[in-house]
Write a protein that binds this DNA or RNA. Structure first.
Lengths: 337, 337
DNA sequence: AACAGCAACCAAAACGTTTTGGAGGATTTT
DNA sequence: AAAATCCTCCAAAACGTTTTGGTTGCTGTT
């Protein structure tokens, strides 16, 4: 592999001159520069980013911490779409992406922040991290600039991007109350996610606005899992025939609820309205098509990378980015009988 | 950030000793080692991988070249699942993953192999690359070890992993001929993919075995796109009412064909049998559920990373990995009327 | 003729590691 | 008692860049 030295030798100049010529400094004669450039091309030279990083102590790399880059999440494309956004945004700015996924074995051996420091990433984006993940705190406490997705923590070196989950949930439930539903349950996710709390909040808010008393036993926990939601919904529907609508904190859980309803012989939407959250691809393919709240996952990723890079480059930027979401009405919602 | 020098100073030894102590060499007294280790911990030291890479000229990094990490592919989870496999496999071996995606703007400025050389990745995995992509040739010609997914090229520094597409396609078509179909069309992908050629081959092979004459006009091109497939199928079905079955080279295209059939008022599977390829998540959610050929995408990724790392570490490994696939019979296939 | 100013170049240090080729002293072997 | 061996340690070079703080020689000004 040709180095800057080889070029210097071939061109009969010092390495300094080669470096400055190639990097566009103007204290080098244009003729010399041209010569150097042509030699560089000839030698098929590409600068060694490792060496450069070492001296500049800048790697132009951002780390992507995904809690579980695993097949469990394969059904909803959440992570993938976010990654697309991150990738586009960061490559636009000339940053490379390095993937840190929490393999259980590796996680024990090395902490996130260790990985980051070793690899000298300039900042990280964390996606899918549970709120009680010990490593979340660790990264935040370290001084590595960091952007969280869907975890609302703000600070000097930490920002976040999320959607307005309270509003999104409220919209969904409002859609149900507008249709005339009064007995509305919520299939929530686990409590280690901020979004669960927010969505519950939105649910309560709309209940209040519609003057519907909140009932504790109408709050179900599906852990964000299809199977769990199905199981929970199955017995719940049995015990609560008065319930005519269920708001689900994720489409995946909504799918589970739909299955439960089918198994109970309950018709959707005639006897039970269901609205989901996320608008995953599947949502418009299931029968009936699922009404849901859309989040622009690509945008989430894109903005996250943008925010991080702004932070890295000292541009002032709001460390708190909240994106819109919108209700998509399909065929799982109808007036109660 | 604490460096090895700080530790040396604090411990009253040379940097050499610190390095050797921390790296487990046995020419250092256990007492000294313990002292160094404790100081390192105290200082919250982590080795600088950049500096280490520079001197060892090893980065322990593999590049992941994805032709389009974009939302176009979002519907099928192909890339994502492969990435999961790659990630698990490589992190198991202690390699980090760096993402190179062909952003059109960036692609023009810097070629793949340049990116790889700059970043000093030790090898690359290429996924979703079209056979006529100029950069494919470039990477192969460079001496960077490289594993291709679904592109069958073999060489000293290049291997591939794929599934047996001829067999898979034949199985699918055999399923149709066994059911009694005689007029079977194929909705193929574009010709820039090896898999298209292979699947066509499998289709022909089974036709021959079933003594059905091959007809050129039964070969359709859906470009691997749902919309395109729908469009092509729509007019084809109109002109060829004798056709009772269509084998599709991807599930996505099968979905398109299903839509076309619906629009034409053709009942699936009663009047038209359809079998897809890939077994994407959607396949079991559409109505009727899609019969298809399953490929274990996770395994493809996993094996690809394994092969690459074997190549990197000089373990002898077969540069050609062909994985099994299997027919999944659901509800889009039935006997012809 | 002396000087300032400028264009074009360069030597050396620095970045944080690993590795090479010893060195010094203690211990064991002859 | 000398020689050989072992244990522990270290100075310096190396990796490929960028940056700092110059130097050299030329042009034009006084």
């Amino acid at each position: 592999m040709a180095t800057i030295k080889d070029i210097a030798k071939a061109a009969g100049v010092s390495v300094t001159t080669v470096s400055r010529a190639l990097n566009g400094y103007n204290d080098v004669n244009e003729k010399t520069r041209a010569k150097i450039k042509s030699i560089a091309e000839e030698l098929n030279y590409s600068p060694n980013a490792v060496a450069r990083s070492l001296v500049k102590s800048k790697t132009e790399t951002i780390g992507l911490l995904v809690s579980e880059l695993s097949l469990s999440g394969a059904k909803d494309m959440f992570t993938y779409e976010i990654m697309c956004g991150i990738n586009d945004s960061s490559s636009e700015k000339g940053y490379d992406l390095i993937l840190f996924s929490t393999n259980s074995a590796k996680q024990k051996a090395k902490s996130y922040s260790q990985l980051c420091r070793e690899r000298q990433v300039e900042g990280v984006i964390m996606q899918g991290i549970k709120i009680d993940d010990p490593y979340l705190k660790e990264v935040i406490d370290s001084n590595i600039p960091c952007v969280l997705i869907d975890v609302e923590i703000e600070g000097e070196n930490v920002g976040f991007v999320s959607t307005d989950n309270v509003f999104g949930a409220q919209m969904a439930v409002k859609h149900l109350t507008n249709l005339g539903h009064r007995n509305i349950a919520i299939m929530n996710g686990h409590n280690q996610a901020v979004v669960s709390q927010k969505r519950l909040q939105g649910y309560k808010k709309q209940l209040e606005e519609a003057s519907i008393p909140f009932q504790d036993e109408y709050v179900l926990n599906g852990e964000f899992l299809e199977e769990k939601a199905e199981k929970v919904a199955y017995s719940f529907l049995n015990e609560h025939p008065e319930v005519t609508a269920i708001f689900c904190a994720s489409d995946l859980m909504a799918l589970g609820v739909m299955n439960a309803a089918k198994r109970q012989g309950i018709a959707v939407p005639e006897e039970l309205s269901i609205v989901g959250y996320d608008n995953i691809t599947l949502a418009e393919y299931v029968q009936p098509q699922l009404s849901t709240v859309e989040q622009n996952k690509y945008q989430i990723g894109f903005k996250a990378a943008k925010l991080l890079i702004d932070m890295l480059e000292g541009n002032k930027a709001n460390r708190k980015v909240i994106l819109d979401n919108q209700l998509i009405i399909r065929n799982t919602t109808a007036e109660p009988k």
